[in-house]
């Protein structure tokens, strides 16, 4: 087996799976272009083919040389210590990946579930908003429970979760919580400092973008978040 480890198979397997999916879906747009006989599929399929070749090359490389960097590449030098950090902390275990993947799925659950619920139970606008609030609350609890033991996974998922909530809850209400969350996950524990920094960052951002540049930030569309955003924007301007 050379120097292969299960992780190598998973990594190469992911690339091959990606290539397979992309190849299957490329038939969706297999149509002739009159002036160009290669059509719309030639370029992506060439990329897919090269992807397969490179993934297999990588497998062969792992088999022969394990995890070493090739000489002549900048791999060893441009290594920013991220691999080292991952190794030291056991963030390469299967359990960690499963927990992190679950965390990453949470935001997408928020983006899909209320819509389905509204369809199934034929909810009106008020019902949809209530469904969104309930769904957000439940998912935040799930998020907190998983993040408890997995701060790195929590940091990866938090911004996506924040982005998913932006549309409905608005920037103005969620951003301060987001700032505090990021600081907490990075190990800050002093409430006074967290409050000062959160206020400072919000102050700078709101001054810069709302009063000076007039960039409209998402205000949200769910009561009471929308009302809060509206009140704050009027206050600043």
């Amino acid at each position: 087996m050379g120097k292969l480890r299960p992780g190598h198979f998973i990594e190469v397997g992911l690339w091959l799976a990606l290539a397979a999916v992309l190849y299957v879906y490329s038939f969706d747009f297999e149509r002739n272009i009159e002036i160009y006989k290669f059509g719309a599929t030639a370029w992506p399929r060439a990329i897919i083919l090269l992807m397969v070749v490179a993934a297999l090359g990588q497998l062969l490389y792992h088999w022969k040389d394990g995890d070493e960097a090739t000489s002549g590449t900048l791999g060893a030098a441009s290594d920013d210590g991220s691999e080292e950090a991952a190794r030291r902390t056991g963030h390469t275990s299967l359990r960690w990946y499963v927990s992190t993947l679950t965390l990453l799925v949470i935001p997408f659950a928020y983006m899909r579930v209320p819509g389905w619920a509204a369809e199934v139970f034929a909810l009106d606008d008020g019902g949809l908003h209530a469904a969104k609030l309930i769904c957000a609350a439940v998912l935040i609890l799930v998020y907190l429970a998983l993040t408890w033991r997995n701060h790195v996974g929590g940091i990866l998922a938090l911004p996506i979760f924040f982005a998913a909530l932006l549309e409905d809850m608005g920037f103005y209400a969620t951003a301060p919580l987001f700032i505090v969350g990021v600081m907490f996950l990075m190990g800050e524990r002093r409430p006074k400092w967290m409050a000062i920094v959160a206020a400072l960052i919000m102050g700078i951002l709101l001054f810069l973008f709302v009063s000076v540049l007039y960039v409209g930030l998402p205000t949200g569309n769910v009561h009471p978040f929308y009302d809060f955003s509206h009140w704050l924007v009027t206050l600043i301007q």
Binding site: W15, L22, F29, R31, I33, E34, I35, Y36, G39, A40, W43, P44, I47, I48, L50, M51, A54, A55, G57, Q58, Y61, A69, T70, T73, L74, G75, A76, S78, D79
Partner: peptide
């Protein structure tokens, strides 16, 4: 650019693939 030649190519190819999404430049 990357740790191995193959990972370098996979990085580039992933970028090329992202650029494929959307309307094709000829037809």
């Amino acid at each position: 650019g990357a740790k191995t030649l193959w990972k370098g190519w996979l990085s580039i190819l992933a970028g090329l693939m992202i650029a494929v999404v959307g309307l094709d430049p000829v037809g």
